[in-house]
Computed example of a mutant assay.
Amino acid sequence: MRNFTSVEQSIDDAAHRYLDRPRVGPLRGRLTEFVVFGLKQAWACVFGAALLAVIIAARLWYPDNAGLARNDFLTIAAVVIQVLMISFKLETLRELRVILLFHVVGTVMELFKTDVGSWAYEAEGVLRIGAVPLFSGFMYAAVGSYMVRVFRLFDLRFDRYPRRWITALVAGAIYVNFFSHHYIFDARWVLLAAVVLVYGRCVMHFRVFRRRFRMPILVSFLLVALFIWFAENIGTWSRAWLYPNQLEGWQAVSIDKLLAWFLLMIISVVLVAWVYKPEPLEATQTADATQIPSGRPDLGVTSRSE
């Protein structure tokens, strides 16, 4: 069962009035799947997109002499976005719990990384912990929001998903390495090999509109990490935070950071997997993009009831 807000119900009804018309040839069918895929991805990114838009707007138009510091403005704006997400039931309270966990995990890492000089924020505002403005935790929450929403919007199913306790061990080791590599051996390449070993056989099945598609889960990790890397370039360009090599002038974030985001994806997936247990593909659905059973297809633009 799914709950619809009035806005989402209107979107769903309008979409079906258009998309449920008889298809004219395979080209239109493929185009429909492509368009719906893009719309679902955009809907899943609504929290992150809104936060990124605010960060860009603050960089371009927020006055330097304002009574409220820019970082405090970003924190307040992020809180407002999160409240609206819950108020309009774009996220459930069940999902909010894991998003708050993203906050904690991310903020702890931010406190450490800024202390050792991995990156820095402008020293302004009062809504901060040490050198870390509180809006930074919402950037990790945006990743969490995307993960939990895409999980249900695309009705994800998995073949050969590894045991969750094994994935938790790998994620724990990755998280520890984010701290320990400053003092001892950097095990990121060993951890990457472990990720490939653990997830290498896993295939993700996702439903777009009328059809299911499949993708190796490692490819999905890489694509999401690449998307976050692009967003990080926008964030540093806006001077929301800066890496040491950007202090004298902005330059693109090193492609090496893509590996860090790929490994962070494993932590994200493990956290979400404790909210939505990965389920196998039903026996009636084949592995190669089968047709959805007759009846009105679900666009998945709404929240699942708790």
Rank of each mutant, 00 (worst) to 15 (best):
S303W: 03
M147F: 10
W237I: 12
P297F: 09
E232L: 11
M215H: 04
E122T: 00
I86H: 02
V79E: 04
Q82C: 10
G295N: 05
S145E: 00
R210T: 00
Q41A: 12
W165G: 03
G172P: 06
S145Y: 02
L192W: 12
A131Y: 00
A66I: 02
L192H: 03
G295I: 09
L153D: 03
I81L: 08
Q285D: 04
F209R: 03
I174R: 00
I76N: 14
V105T: 13
S136G: 10
A58R: 15
A120G: 06
K89A: 10
S87V: 13
I228W: 09
A66Y: 12
M1T: 10
N177V: 12
V224M: 12
I86L: 11
S254C: 07
F135Q: 06
I86F: 01
P133A: 04
I81H: 08
I99Q: 15
D64K: 14
P293C: 11
A193M: 10
A171I: 10
L93D: 11
V203C: 07
Q9C: 08
A77T: 09
R296G: 07
A14L: 14
P22M: 14
E232M: 03
S136L: 01
W119A: 01
S220K: 12
V176D: 07
P297M: 15
F37W: 14
F135T: 05
V36Q: 04
A66C: 12
D186Q: 05
T286M: 10
P297S: 05
A49D: 06
V148K: 03
Y140S: 05
R160N: 02
Y199I: 13
M204S: 09
L259G: 01
L90R: 15
A58V: 15
V301N: 13
H181A: 01
G117A: 13
D256K: 05
L218T: 01
F151T: 10
L31F: 13
V24H: 12
A57M: 12
A69F: 06
Y18R: 14
Q41K: 08
S10L: 08
A44W: 09
V132S: 03
G235I: 01
F154W: 05
V7G: 09
A273M: 02
W165D: 12
L192A: 01
N3R: 14
R70Q: 05
G235Y: 05
G295C: 00
I76W: 06
S118Q: 02
F112E: 13
I86K: 01
T302L: 11
E124I: 05
F73C: 12
V108G: 13
D159H: 02
